[in-house]
């Protein structure tokens, strides 16, 4: 067997796993400058996060997926059913979660022999707001069909926030500088899973869709 043939075979054997590892966004259209520019921006942020011993979030609005990651490896993924966004052009760099979604913790009472129920995924909220610094607000709601009340509440909150912004803008005669705002619809189970995995100070990067 010639040297070239051996070399080609070795290349073929190694190539698939290498290629998979070396293409951070397999969906990326490399002929779309805006998309490539955005992917590069996200990667620059992600490299900084992956260099540290921490878990972080990547919200990919191109593939409609929330990735929980560590060291650049995907640990868990949450499919986004639907999303909407405002002022995403104001997104810059990495955002940090100010406080994780609330959960009611049971207190152990040493004076009784009754064991406290541990918290579980089922105890996590299905609808909640995540606030980040620098300014970014993410409303997470279950899909309408799964929990109509929670969905209505989330939509109502978003509408109320928008109305307040508009009113302020009208009364002052100046356009308000709106911070970035994302509304995500995920399944109730995935909303609870995301609430569970979010920890105070957790880093987040958002990959936006490029304008076509």
């Amino acid at each position: 067997m010639s040297f070239c043939a051996v070399f080609f075979m070795l290349l073929l054997m190694g190539a698939p796993s290498q290629a998979g590892d070396l293409d951070a966004f397999p969906d990326l259209n490399l002929n779309d400058p805006g998309a490539v520019q955005e992917a590069a921006r996200v990667l620059q942020e992600e490299i900084k996060l992956a260099a540290r011993p921490q878990t972080y979030l990547l919200i990919d609005l191109v593939t409609s997926t929330i990735h929980i990651k560590g060291r650049g490896v995907e640990l868990h993924r949450v499919p986004i059913v639907a999303w909407s966004a405002k002022a995403l052009h104001n997104l810059k760099g990495t955002h940090r979660l100010i406080v994780r979604p609330p959960v009611v913790r049971r207190k152990i009472d040493p004076t009784t022999s009754v064991e406290q129920e541990p918290i579980s995924l089922a105890d996590m909220p299905v609808g909640y707001t995540l606030s980040f610094t620098p300014s970014l607000i993410i409303d997470v709601a279950p899909v309408a069909g799964e929990n109509p009340l929670q969905w209505l509440k989330a939509r109502g909150n978003a509408w109320w926030r928008s109305l307040k912004d508009e009113t302020r803008s009208l009364s002052t005669g100046q356009s308000t500088t709106q911070g970035p705002h994302l509304q995500l619809e995920v399944s109730a189970e995935q909303a609870q899973s995301l609430a569970w995995s979010a920890v105070d100070g957790m880093a987040l990067v958002v990959r936006r869709r490029a304008d076509k």
Partner: peptide, 9 residues
């Protein structure tokens, strides 16, 4: 994106 307000950048 299902909502009309969804905005690409």
């Amino acid at each position: 994106a299902l909502f009309p307000s969804s905005e690409p950048f």
